[in-house]
Design a protein around this nucleic acid. Structure first.
Lengths: 232, 232
DNA sequence: CCAAATAGAGAGCAGTGCTCTTGTTTTGGT
DNA sequence: ACCAAAACAAGAGCACTGCTCTCTATTTGG
């Protein structure tokens, strides 16, 4: 299925990858605003119009980078969890590791983080191609909570009536098997985790939090508590 | 001190305001990426170079809009709190109102929200002029917790040793009088609130959360609980 | 082997931020 | 009241952007 038919096809794959690599380099160096097709083409020794054979617009290139970024952060989260699980870590520790890996990835790739969790840059774009990869990091957290629930069970206070149906729908959609209260707490915790990391990456904590490592570790631990993970 | 000296000075103030108004209109309509000095100038019937007499660069204009946006969201938060307090609402209800006002402002002004809580758009910029206005909304929440603490007192579990000094420093810096545990929880709650709202505004909850009102109300209530506000 | 598909190059359009120069108007001190 | 100085507006221009179009060379598959 993925057999490369000829030299042309092979070249196309290589050039496409080279474009993305160069674009990612510029993104990391200067941010999405300064990423220009012409500069990428120039750096690759081609003319800008030739680049449109590979990406029909700047936004499509950005979308490709977005998908890659989601995959990258998702992989980082999954690897952190795999390591923790291999070391026999309890759910709470796995949770902390995954949150920490998410934050570390964001701090190491601030511009890519901005691209996916910051303001949507290119008009809008990127609705459907990205939902799969986007879920990877969150799914790592869901997996931890699911494991903990299948272990000794998780119990949280009942939800307000207004949220019960919605929580059951969410559970059926992407967290099958969890109690609805846990699903709701999990989604909230995900949003809150993104907030903590965004505040740090985007500078909202600049003259506020100094010891960011300690602060985040504690806050992430609290999030683990909020979704019902046992304390040790 | 604010006496306008002559016709020229008056005109300058008016033109400056007109530029900001038009820029804000375009920002709200199309987003920061599509905001162009030339378009603003064109709409105002002036030539683009003339605009540089009022704002030395596009980034400076954006910074001015950022400051205004911080003020706007801060005012919305303060007004919501004032209304709730006038109605004799307990701290927990005031907290919910302010969180709700923050979210409502964000949903009503998504592009301005992106400007201040999304990725920093123009290179970087905007470090010092903005810290004052930026704190208004957060200060509203601090005020609520302070009032609750001075009322019946707030007690939270002790902090891990690694965070104690940092929490005391933060308390001294901007939350004088609160227990350090509460300060730490407050800062975390602020980041988490920003995360919940950002996820909603930036579309991270798109195929995830449907009943956003109910979900946010519950999550904001949990944040109120996390900072130690009594349950009713 | 040759028509069709594909890739690249170059020119060009409309738009951008920003600078510099050239006149014009308002201001404030003498 | 006058006049230099300051502030302002306008226009031309530079270097850049995304994107389209046309033209030519190359590779492909029937």
């Amino acid at each position: 299925m993925s057999t490369v038919r000829g030299a042309r096809e092979r070249a196309r794959i290589e050039v496409t990858a080279a474009i993305k690599d160069e674009a990612r380099r510029m993104l990391a160096a200067e941010g999405a605003a300064k990423l220009s097709l012409r500069a990428v083409a120039r750096e690759l020794g081609m003319v800008s119009s030739a680049l449109y054979r590979y990406f029909p617009s700047r936004d499509e290139l950005l979308t490709a980078l977005i998908v890659d970024a989601y995959d990258s952060v998702g992989a980082a989260a999954e690897e952190a969890d795999a390591r923790a699980r291999a070391a026999g870590a309890p759910p709470r520790a796995r949770w902390a590791e995954v949150c920490g890996a998410f934050r570390a990835w964001a701090l190491a790739h601030p511009h890519e983080y901005s691209l996916i969790y910051g303001s949507p840059v290119p008009g809008y774009s990127a609705p459907l191609d990205t939902v799969g990869p986007a879920a990877r990091a969150a799914n790592a957290l869901i997996g931890i909570v699911r494991a903990a629930h299948q272990g000794r069970g998780i119990a949280l206070p009942p939800l307000p009536a207004a949220l019960r149906a919605e929580a059951e729908r969410m559970t059926a959609d992407f967290a099958e098997g969890l109690p609805p209260e846990v699903t709701a707490a999990l989604v909230a915790a995900w949003g809150q985790l993104v907030g903590l990391v965004s505040c740090e990456v985007f500078g909202q904590f600049n003259r506020v939090v100094e010891d960011r490592d300690a602060f985040f570790a504690h806050a992430a631990g609290q999030l683990g508590h909020a979704v019902g993970l046992p304390s040790v």
